[in-house]
Nucleic acid binder design. Structure first.
Length: 603
RNA sequence: GGCCCCGUGGUGUAGCGGCUUAACACGCCAGCCUGUCACGCUGGAGAUCAUGGGUUCAAAUCCCAUCGGGGUCGCCA
């Protein structure tokens, strides 16, 4: 596109353009004033171009360039020259050439930047967020935004080619109980009534299946009013997807194909494990203590309860007698951990709910057989409570060799798994096992349908109440609901939950039964879910889907450590927008219209 | 809601009870400089040390509270 501002992009000029008269436009990335010659690196979306202002070539232009400062916006017309011998800059795509300016126009001036726009400066995030539009000028942020576009475009094209259609669903919706806290929108026309923003388009996509759109997807914005984390924002984006007449394997196969295609396109340098790994929920909890394991490294957990149930160590014995377990793993080569390093690990698990951490350093020459292990070589506060046979058995069970450091936690199973899964990540990180150039995807399958909530004394859905049961476990719902497994699957990469999905219940009667098992009264069921139940009664097809989180996926692809860096305008961890200063108060008139009255918060 | 880390010119850091009239780098302003590309040289401006209270003869420095940012546990069907 040629117009009065430019006819070429800065980054796209090269030696083929030598001798041409061109116009470019962009920002002053850097200015080097030699008194006579002035060099300006002009930057547009495509890259940098060195522009030379020679007073002998352009008297007026040189005077203008003298006025230019960082981030001024210029339009320059001139001739493309090959750079003098030895003056090439191999770090620029345009480094062989330069533009000799004839005319230059200042399109806009700029105040000095509130922070440097290079990638190397670590700037306080609150300042970056306040001036997010400037932060996005930084090359890394800009490339993250481009990467995100590319990923979404690939997803759309991939699904379109397979017959999926994208359908938008409402943002103003009905609040449904359970799950995350809803963002609410007060209604002007209906005093005292509220819309809710969707936590996901879950029910709507099921209704679209009832409508006969057999392959639906949407790049869907979702809203959840919960506390934030590095990988959580109050509003985030999912690739929401649903299909009719499918089974679990159809969905997983599609995901595998899609993610291999996207990663292969945008990060051909990344190594993937193919086919994607499959783990049952029970297996991943046993081996990794979590249902979102980082499978780039081993350090697998092992249960040693049976080995220490009758040992002389009272803590282990009583924990097991009271229904708890003892699990642990071995950190290879860490037998030389100092008292201080050991104390750090003890604090680490205590902060995560465990009462303590038992450590055993197996000292000696690496490679020595375990059979030669003697009590003297086991450096631990608790060595004396165990026989050498018990110590050897523990070492063998956790796959520890001489030179390794055994880490054991005793408590009830949920506490042990929570503490050890995080300790495993910590050791993986300390040992440098989290290769940034590998993405290990896996599916977690065979989730329990429901979980007993001890605090509220009731059954809760593991996923959501629309999840179908595995065929052979349907009868269990009447006898032992905790044992029944669901057609529910999670999609995990490098320790991040990318996605949850399930085959849904398409039988209205069964759906009603699940709701009542979850403690809803008939009135509540009708009031909250009546529309869905009614729809299921009108010939709903078997269907299922999944909804990968796009922010987290792009974060992994970009090698970023938080999703804010792959979202153009994110909020802080306290859900505030520092650029627009939102949320903010509104006028009394606005409140009046919405039938709202504020009260003083008791402090 | 709990725990942890951070807050010093525009930015990043140093200073951690008196050697401080708060230092350094980058940036900014002015002057010089015709082949630089993180240009160079000379000079200059710029800081209620987040805010409030306390301890002390003396506080950027120690303590408490508040505010802001981040991490994490709880929470996130």
């Amino acid at each position: 596109m040629a117009n009065k501002y430019r006819d070429h992009n800065c980054g796209e000029l090269n030696s083929a353009h030598i001798g041409e008269r061109v116009s470019v436009a962009g920002w002053v990335n850097r200015r080097r004033d030699h008194g006579g010659l002035i060099f300006i690196d002009l930057r547009d979306q495509t890259g940098l171009l060195q522009v030379v202002f020679d007073p002998q070539v352009t008297g007026e232009g040189h005077r203008t360039a003298d006025q230019a400062r960082g981030e001024y916006v210029l339009s320059v017309t001139g001739e493309v020259f090959r750079r003098p011998e030895g003056m090439e800059n191999p770090r620029l795509s345009t480094g062989e050439i330069e533009l000799s300016a004839n005319e230059v126009q200042i399109l806009n001036v700029s105040r000095p930047m509130p922070f440097p726009l290079d990638d190397d400066s670590e700037i306080d995030e609150s300042i970056r967020l306040k001036y997010r539009y400037l932060d996005l000028r930084r090359p890394r942020m800009k490339s993250n935004v481009f990467l995100r576009h590319r990923v979404i475009k690939l997803m759309r094209d991939f699904l379109d080619a397979r017959g999926f259609i994208e359908i938008e669903t409402p943002i103003l919706l009905k609040s449904t109980p359970e799950g995350a806290r809803d963002y609410l929108v007060p209604s002007r026309l209906y005093p005292g009534k509220f819309y809710a923003l969707p936590q996901s388009p879950q029910q709507l996509k099921q209704l679209l299946m009832v409508s006969g759109f057999e392959k639906y997807f949407q790049i869907a914005r979702c809203f959840r009013d919960e506390d934030q984390r590095a990988d959580r924002q109050p509003e985030f984006t999912q690739l929401d997807l649903e299909m009719s007449f499918v089974e679990e394997e159809d969905i997983l196969g599609l995901m595998e194909e899609l993610f291999i295609a996207v990663v292969g396109d945008v990060r051909p340098d990344v190594e993937m494990t193919k086919p994607f790994l499959r783990l049952s929920y029970a297996e991943t909890m046993a081996k990794y203590g979590t249902d979102k394991p980082d499978l780039r490294f081993g350090l697998e957990l092992a249960d040693v309860s049976d080995l220490v149930a009758d040992s002389g160590f009272e803590v282990f014995r009583s924990t097991i007698a009271n229904g708890g377990i003892v699990k642990g793993f071995a950190a290879p080569g860490c037998a030389d951990y100092s008292r201080k390093q050991q104390a750090e690990l003890v604090d680490f698990v205590r902060e995560r709910g465990a009462k303590g951490l038992v450590t055993m350093a197996l000292e000696g020459e690496s490679g020595e057989p375990l059979e030669d292990l003697t009590p003297e070589k086991v450096r631990s506060a608790v060595t004396k409570f165990f026989s050498i046979e018990e110590l050897r058995a523990i070492a063998k069970r956790v796959n520890a060799g001489v030179g390794d450091f055994i880490l054991l936690v005793a408590d009830k199973e949920s506490v042990v798994n929570a503490a050890l899964s995080q300790l495993r990540l910590e050791m993986g990180s300390r040992l440098g096992l989290q290769d940034p150039n590998r993405m290990v995807f896996c599916f977690i399958q065979d989730y329990p349908m429901m979980e007993w909530n001890e605090d509220d004394n009731e059954w809760e859905s593991m996923h959501h109440p629309f999840t179908a049961l595995q065929d052979e476990d349907v009868a269990l719902m009447d006898t032992d609901p905790g044992k029944a497994r669901a057609k529910h699957y999670d999609f995990v990469c490098n320790g991040f939950e990318l996605s949850s999905g399930s085959i849904r219940i398409h039988d209205g009667q069964l759906q009603r039964k699940i709701f009542s098992l979850l403690g809803y009264t008939d009135e509540e069921i009708t009031e909250r879910f009546g529309h869905l139940l009614e729809a299921l009664d009108f010939g709903a097809p078997p269907h299922g889907g999944i909804a990968p989180g796009i922010d987290r996926f792009v974060m992994l692809l970009a090698g970023e450590e938080n999703i804010r860096d792959v979202i153009a305008f994110p909020k802080t961890k306290t859900a505030a927008d520092l650029m627009t200063n939102s949320p903010d108060i509104v006028s009394p008139e606005q409140l009046e219209e919405l039938h709202l009255q504020l009260r003083e918060e008791a402090s």
